[in-house]
């Protein structure tokens, strides 16, 4: 564990909490893609199948459980409790376009053709593109609430910090995981356009609005 990895985990946790608090306090999930949230929940389930077979540390286990509970909580709030506020007309990205390639790729390119390993690989590939329905929704409506922007910024920061963590680990520990690193780079690149808008607009107090 190094400071970049810890910061990445914290950024991820902050993103999840921002989203839950936004939905809970405003009693609305307007502007949030339920499809992205489903993909994140699927990602966590597929990746943390090793929760009971691969013990790493208390920290690791607790964080896994928190991520799982929070992602299920978010999906529950969106599709059950505050269903009436869910903006499904704008949440039209086709999930099979992301899930099927992720399944196919995880069966072809993995570290080991074993059940847990393939599920882990699938979760890595799926997570790298899971934000696309959300970004698609923002581009479709042409804007995002500030709080949604903060959520996306925290979520993008998480993977960017993980990249720094991987560089650090490569040089300090000789550790590297090519699958996680390449997928992580793809994932971070997807946020670049958003990062630019966030820094040039949201941080200056303006609403995130896409150029017409």
């Amino acid at each position: 564990m190094n400071v970049f990895r810890l910061s990445g985990d914290v950024a991820h946790l902050i993103a999840i909490i921002i989203l839950l608090l936004k939905i809970w306090t405003s009693r609305s999930c307007a502007g949030i893609s339920g499809k992205s949230q489903i993909l994140f929940a699927v990602t966590f389930v597929a990746r943390y199948l090793d929760l009971f077979t691969n013990y790493v540390s208390i920290y690791n286990s607790v964080m896994k459980i928190v991520y799982l509970l929070a992602s299920f909580g978010t999906v529950y709030l969106m599709y059950m409790k505050f269903k009436a506020t869910y903006d499904h007309n704008h949440d039209t990205f086709r999930l099979e376009f992301l899930i099927l390639p992720a399944i196919a790729l995880s069966l072809i390119i993995n570290h080991d053709f074993a059940v847990i390993e393939v599920f882990w690989t699938f979760s890595i590939y799926l997570e790298s593109v899971a934000i696309l329905p959300q970004l698609f929704m923002v581009s479709k409506t042409g804007e995002a609430e500030s709080i949604t922007s903060h959520y996306l910024f925290a979520l993008g920061s998480y993977r960017a910090l993980y990249i720094v963590n991987w560089i650090y680990r490569y040089y300090m520990e000789g550790f590297y995981d090519m699958i996680a690193t390449l997928a992580g780079i793809v994932q971070t690149v997807l946020y670049c356009d958003f990062f630019y808008l966030y820094i040039t607009k949201v941080l200056k107090g303006k609403k995130l609005q896409l150029p017409a």
Partner: peptide, 10 residues
């Protein structure tokens, strides 16, 4: 099996 990186990250 030996070349599978350890899964200690989240």
């Amino acid at each position: 099996e030996g070349d599978v990186p350890a899964k200690d990250e989240l």
